[in-house]
């Protein structure tokens, strides 16, 4: 559909969540929890952390949670009966107050889970999620969205996007049919937008630091450059913090939890940074050392995904670098691999 532009008074913003809740939509939004910001169910705008740059974890858990039941089973005398979770059973949900990189992060997940065989559990949840993003008036030195094709006002993946254009007014972009359906709930609060509004004036200045095509090209050619990967990863301690806060990391593990009569099969986040990730039953591990695991992390996002799924698996949100206990900074490492862009 063609994009529509409207104006909403800031003072009317609380009404949106009130109305969504009245209509029965669960609303998920960033919420302050001590020093971290989590994406959780909210009942009113008061709870929403609109003042923060980014939530600590990405928004992926809306459609790809850290623990997800995929089936129940009962163990009979002669057979095991499986009762898979019905993908249709998920609720229409609103993801509110996230950033453009959260919304566009689903592009990678859609490509991964939409590939054959299709992952209905993810796809249905994603289909039933309407994303209301807020463009970024500020950025920090970990942000590099503009270097990977995004931007502080990028609308890809969002159904609705708000931009603060003054203390009292928000510019609303209605971007999709899903967004239009939701906007109809508060249509009478909206005014027509003036034609001369330049959204870019209200966005953070995020400088392009590297040329992403050169990163893809050089990453693809660097598989055997063991020195490069070793030098970058000597201080990496091999935890999964980067993967678990990442909006595009999609690796998972299955675990059964059962007693003698019944059990559940769970899907859990996993990370290529863990030494156990590729350990074979034989004891052989094709990624024996941390530098090989670091190489996998970068190559998956910048070589394998562009090649196989035609998307770069990184949104430039910088969460991995903020979360890393030992300052593994992906922006720095990608700049070192690719061609620097000097502005």
């Amino acid at each position: 559909m063609e994009k529509e532009l409207k104006i909403l008074k800031y003072s009317d913003l609380p009404k949106l969540i009130e109305r969504f809740r009245k209509q029965g939509y669960p609303v998920l939004a960033p919420v302050h929890k001590g020093k971290v910001v989590e994406i959780e169910l909210v009942e009113s705008l008061d709870a929403v952390a609109l003042d923060v740059l980014l939530s600590t974890q990405s928004a992926k858990k809306v459609a790809f949670p850290k623990v997800e039941k995929v089936l129940d089973y009962t163990i009979g005398k002669t057979a095991v009966k499986q009762i898979p979770v019905n993908p249709e059973a998920c609720l229409e949900t609103i993801l509110f107050g996230v950033r453009p990189c959260d919304a566009s992060g689903f592009k990678s997940l859609d490509a991964i889970f939409g590939d054959t065989p299709k992952d209905e559990l993810y796809l249905k949840k994603k289909e039933k999620t309407t994303i209301i993003s807020f463009s970024c008036p500020t950025a920090d030195e970990y942000c590099f969205c503009t270097s990977v094709g995004g931007g502080p006002g990028n609308t890809a993946g969002s159904d609705l996007q708000f931009t603060e254009i003054s203390k009292d007014e928000l510019l609303l972009e209605i971007l999709t049919e899903k967004g239009a359906k939701l906007a109809s709930i508060f249509a009478e609060l909206l005014a027509e937008a003036r034609k001369d509004i330049d959204k870019n004036k209200f966005l953070a200045d995020v400088k392009v630091v590297f040329d992403v095509d050169s990163v893809v090209e050089k990453t693809t050619a660097s598989f055997n450059n063991t020195d490069l990967w070793l030098e970058q990863s000597l201080r990496c301690i091999g935890c999964g913090a980067c993967a678990f806060v990442c909006p595009t990391c999609a690796c998972f593990d299955f675990q059964d939890e059962q007693n003698t009569k019944k059990g559940v099969r769970l899907r859990l986040w996993d990370s290529c940074g863990f030494s156990l990730f590729t350990l074979h039953t034989s004891g052989h591990n094709p990624r024996e050392v941390q530098s090989q695991r670091w190489r996998q992390r970068i190559m998956h996002k910048f070589a394998y995904m562009p090649e196989q799924l035609k998307v770069v698996g990184c949104e430039g949100c910088g969460r991995c670098s903020r979360a890393c206990p030992v300052d593994m900074n992906i922006k720095e490492h990608l700049t070192a691999i690719g061609e620097k862009v000097v502005v």
Binding site: V36, I237, A241, A243, F244, W269
Partner: peptide
Amino acid sequence: EKCIKCYACRAACPMCYCHRCTTD
């Protein structure tokens, strides 16, 4: 409740050096 089991605590701990942690 906040824990995401990224095992950063274990990875950062100088005493957590087991090749195969009990949790694995």
